[in-house]
Amino acid sequence: MSGAAGPDAAALLEARAAVLAFGRTPALRGTDLRVARGEIVAVMGPSGSGKSTLLHCLAGILVPDSGEILFDGRRVDRMREAERSELRRDRFGFVFQFGQLVPELTAEENVAMPLLLGGARRGTALTEARDWFPRLGLEGLERRRSGELSGGQAQRVALARAMVARPDVLFADEPTGSLDTYTGEQVMELLVDAVRANGTTAVIVTHDARVAACADREVMVRDGKVTSPHLERTGP
C-alpha cells in the first residue's frame, strides 16, 4: 500500500450518485466513488459497464445529468466549461489506450505540450520535457515523431506528457490496452513509480487484473454502478 491513504481518508476526488445517459443509453446509474489523496485506484469491469464514462465525469470532461463530482472540495459538475477546461489543464494529466500523441510534433514537443498550454516559454518547456526521457528509458527518442515509436515507447511518451506538469490527479484509460503483457508491465511500473514519486493521485481504468494489481485497491463497475467487495466478509 506504500503508505497511501485508505478509502476512509478525506477524499480528493469523489463521485456521488452520478447519473449519465447518452440519449437513451444509460451509462452511469448512481455511481459513487471516493479517491483519497495519493491513492492509486483501479476501476475494473466488463466492457460497456461505464468505466470510461465515470473517468470522464471525474475528470470534468463530461458532466453527469445528476449527482455530484467533487475535486478538492469543489463541485466540478457545477463549473462552467472554461473552468473545467482550466482544471483539466492545470491539475489533471491523461493517458489513453492509444498514446494519442500529436503526429506532427516530435516526442519532446508532445511532452512539452501541457507546459506550453499552461503558458511556459518554449525553451523552458522543452528542457523540462527532456528530463523525462531518461527517467522513462526513452533517451535518444526526443526528436522522433509518434509514427517512429513502438507502442510501448509511445505510451511512455504519453505518460511523460501526462506527468510533466505535475498533476494532482492522473487519469488513465486502459493505458496498456494496446500493449503485450511484458511491455504493458514495464509501462505500469514506470507509471506507478512516477505517480508515487510525485505524490499524484491516480484513477486507472482497466479490464486487466495485472494492471489493477499495481493499484492500492480496485473497484468494479457493473451496469453503471460501483461495487467494491469487502474481502473481510468472506467466510471460511
Binding site: M44, A209, E218, L231
Partner: peptide, 9 residues
C-alpha cells in the same frame, strides 16, 4: 466478486 477481489489481492 469476492473471489475476484481475493485473486486480485
Amino acid at each position: 466478486d469476492l473471489q475476484r477481489a481475493a485473486h486480485v489481492a
